Every structure is written in C-alpha cells, then in structure tokens.
Amino acid sequence: MQLIDGKATAAAIKAEIAEEVKEIVAQGGKQPHLAAVLVGHDGGSETYVKNKVLACEACGFKSTLIRFEDNISEDELLCCVDKLNKDDDVDGFIVQLPLPKHIDEQKIIEAIDYRKDVDGFHPINVGRMAIGLPCFISATPLGIITLLKHYGIETSGKKCVILGRSNIVGKPMAQLMMQKQYGDATVTVCHSRSKTLKEECRAADIIIAAIGQPDFVTADMVKEGAVIVDVGTTRVPDATRKSGFRLNGDVKFDEVAPKCSYITPVPGGVGPMTICSLMKNTLAAGKKEYYK
C-alpha cells in the first residue's frame, strides 16, 4: 500500500509555479492576481480562504481578500462580482461557497466572467470541460487527475467508480475520468439512491469517494489492489484536539488501507491539491491561456 501524498505533490507544483511567475515578472510581465470573496464566518470557508491566501504567497501571486457579513444582500454581492469582472488587474476570482440561504448561488456563479472563473463553476467552463475544450477545470477534480498522473497510476481502460454526483466533484470527475486525454476509464457514478452501490465498488479498480459521509467506504466494499481517492472532509468532534474536531474522510481508512495499492489520507491528500489546482488555474488566467 502506498500513501498518495497530496501535500508534498502540491508543494512541488507550487514551487514550479513560483519559478514561472518569477520569469514572467523578470521579463516585464504582470504578476498573476487572485481575488477571493468570503461571505460570513463559516469555519470551513475561513480555513479554505486562509490556505488560498498562503498558497498565493508561495506561488508569488498577488492576492486580495474581500469580506462581507452574512447579511449582505444578493444585489450587493452581484455588484461586487461586477466590479471584479471589470477590474483589469484581477486575473481570476472566486466567491467562496456555501453562501447564506437568502443568496442564489447559481445566480452568483453565472454572474462571474467565465474568463476569470478560476473555480471552473461557470456553465461555459463546465460545458467546455464536458466536450474536452481548453477551460478552467473545477479545482478538486483537476487536483485528483494531477495526483493520479503524478503517481503514474494507470487509469486507461480501468473501471472507475465515483461516489457522489455533485456539480463540484462527482459530475466533473466522471467527465474527466471518461475523457481520452485525462482518465480514459470506464466510469460508473453511484449515489445515495444506487441499489447496487456495494457491488459496483467491489468491482472497481479505482474508487473516488465524494459522498460526504464519514467512514462510508468500508473494507468489504473494496477489492484487493484498488486505488482509493478520498475527497470527504467532514468535521467530526474530537475532544483530544485543540480545535475540538478532526477532519474525517468518506473512507474508513484504517480498515480499507491494507487492501489498497494506493490511497489518499485525510487530511493531506486531495485537500492540498484542490488549492494547488486553483493556483494552476490562476496562472493560466494570468497568461490568458484559454481565453484571450
């Protein structure tokens, strides 16, 4: 069993990005600029945004954090998005999800200029990704593809089961694993209504778990030598930790790991690669790689 170290992989990629940014700036080019909009004080969102700001520093990017209280109106938030769309110095920006209940998330996502949508959530980017055109790819799926490639894990022709059908992970992950230039695998998507979920998992060479239920994948669902990618990050109470909680994956790690050829830990697996992918997308935005 080999542990897939997302932390080390992300650090290596960020170092490469930092070198490239140095060269761009040395040749008189513009320093890439990522802005993040944070609404309210959700603990998970605070952590993610803090890590994104630190990653920007590591990559040599300029970063801007715009904070609002959770009583901000939808119109005010749309006005902020419009400003960022028009700001020529901002190459890419994200609006951290989830948003308060009174704000229509989809409306906000669609208001973002798709050429600055480094989260890869805008329908234009989602559509382009689905048919294999150059675009910003949703950060978590892109991070997983990068990890599989980095570790030389064979995906072509393999049976891949994806647990979860969210717009952020499950659906784009299935699209990428299916496509020739990325996964080239045979893909099955399972979710809470799937009747043969355990049987599908037992036949899988690769399981990507993004179902949001701690310890959902157990040893009896995994065949010997399978590759397991755990996207789950649920906060579970833990009195032994200073924070009072620990992050728990969708996979029951201790019992599943011995059966695997490769497995990602939580934390330190997919999480760091998600932020690293956002940095890759921001660099691409700064270089106008996909959209002129």
Rank of each mutant, 00 (worst) to 15 (best):
Q31G: 09
K259T: 01
V227P: 08
G127P: 13
I124C: 11
Q175E: 15
K159H: 15
Q175Y: 09
F253N: 12
S243A: 11
V236N: 03
I275P: 04
K86Y: 04
S243I: 00
T146M: 02
K198I: 01
P265H: 12
E74D: 07
V21Q: 12
I94D: 04
V251K: 07
I112H: 09
E224W: 04
L84R: 10
V21D: 12
Y182V: 00
G170Y: 12
I4L: 15
E154P: 09
T9Y: 03
P214C: 01
A204D: 09
V118A: 10
M129G: 13
I162W: 13
T233C: 05
I131R: 15
A185K: 06
L142A: 15
A210L: 06
D82I: 00
S63G: 04
G225P: 10
K52G: 06
G286W: 05
L99R: 06
A18R: 15
L142E: 12
V236R: 04
A209Y: 10
E199A: 15
G40Q: 03
T9E: 07
C135F: 07
V25G: 15
P98C: 05
L38N: 03
V161E: 08
G212Q: 10
A35M: 01
K242Q: 12
E69P: 07
G92C: 01
L34A: 11
G157A: 10
A15E: 14
V270F: 05
A204V: 06
D119E: 13
E19K: 14
R67P: 01
L176M: 13
R202W: 02
P272R: 02
